[in-house]
């Protein structure tokens, strides 16, 4: 091949390889979305289906009948209220306890600091269910089984991980020199925290709050172990629907309903933090 020919072929072959790479990327993306989206789409379709008989590919009749059914049920209302207040109370309490604690872990030195810090991890080192069974026996003696506050208490334990570890790494990532520079410019320690430290850890803290809220909202096994049968959350209600009255649409509608709070929260958080800021805050 002569030189000019080679030169002509150069960009073309380059373009081809880029195209091939794109092709692979598209295939992977398509497969991934197929796996992730198919169940979601299926659930979404079922929620708005009134009649869908085999072997039809799309339902014979769409409608909102089951939405009306589900939303008018007293136990759904009750479960929604229970789940939302449970998640809100646990998140608020967890933030109240863990955020000052994480600042202390990140910035202060006290005897037993590392041991105490690691103890948050050990909760996750053991099979969780075993731990909860043990706690459940203690709760039984205290009359906290089947009690709303019993569920709050045990959910609180499982949130420690997010609410301590994520903010700790965020606080540690804040440049101490930036804080010193603010002191130098005339800011009091409190003002430094408010104007320099907090804005930089806010994305990570909102991520931790979001994770805590969503996790508490969806948590099933502990809520069942400690709360059943009196405290009934939405996921527990779903379990009952599936076990006792197998109407696919009930489950589908509830799934979509369950999705709403986390979606709203996600949008709220997205408003003031991009993926980049979140990644930075989490130390990525």
């Amino acid at each position: 091949m002569s030189m000019p020919a080679l030169r002509r072929a150069g960009p073309a072959s380059l373009g081809l390889s880029r195209l091939r790479a794109n092709g692979a990327g598209i295939t992977i993306a398509a497969l991934l979305s197929l796996f992730i989206l198919t169940p979601l789409v299926n659930v979404a379709i079922w929620a708005f289906t009134e009649i869908w008989r085999y072997p039809a590919v799309i339902p014979q009749k769409f409608g909102f009948r089951f939405w009306g059914d589900v939303l008018s049920r007293g136990d759904v209302h009750l479960a929604m209220t229970t789940s939302l207040s449970l998640a809100a109370i646990v998140t608020a309490l967890s933030a109240l306890i863990c955020l000052p604690a994480s600042y202390a872990f990140a910035r202060m030195d006290f005897p037993g600091r590392n041991l105490f810090f690691m103890s948050f991890l050990t909760v996750y080192a053991f099979p969780k269910f075993g731990l909860y069974i043990t706690i459940a026996t203690i709760f039984l003696g205290l009359g906290l089984i089947g009690n709303f506050w019993g569920v709050v208490l045990i959910q609180l334990v499982s949130t420690l991980m997010f609410m301590v570890w994520i903010p700790v790494s965020a606080f540690q990532n804040v440049d101490r020199r930036q804080e010193e520079a603010a002191r130098d410019a005339g800011a009091s320690p409190l003002r430094v925290f408010w104007s320099i430290t907090l804005p930089q850890v806010l994305p990570a803290i909102s991520a931790a709050v979001l994770l805590t809220f969503v996790n508490t909202f969806y948590e099933t096994e502990v809520a069942w172990l400690i709360g059943a049968p009196e405290v009934r959350t939405v996921p527990l209600l779903m379990v009952r629907f599936i076990n006792s009255e197998l109407v696919v649409q009930y489950g589908a509608v509830l799934s979509l309903l369950l999705w709403v709070p986390s979606f709203v929260l996600l949008m709220l958080v997205r408003r003031f933090l991009g993926a980049q800021a979140l990644g930075r805050a989490l130390g990525a």
């Binding site: 440049d175 020199r177 930036q178 010193e180 520079a181 603010a182 320099i196 930089q200």
Partner: peptide
């Protein structure tokens, strides 16, 4: 004070 790492508020 001017710091080595400039310490600007990002």
């Amino acid at each position: 004070m001017v710091f080595q790492s400039h310490a600007l508020w990002t």
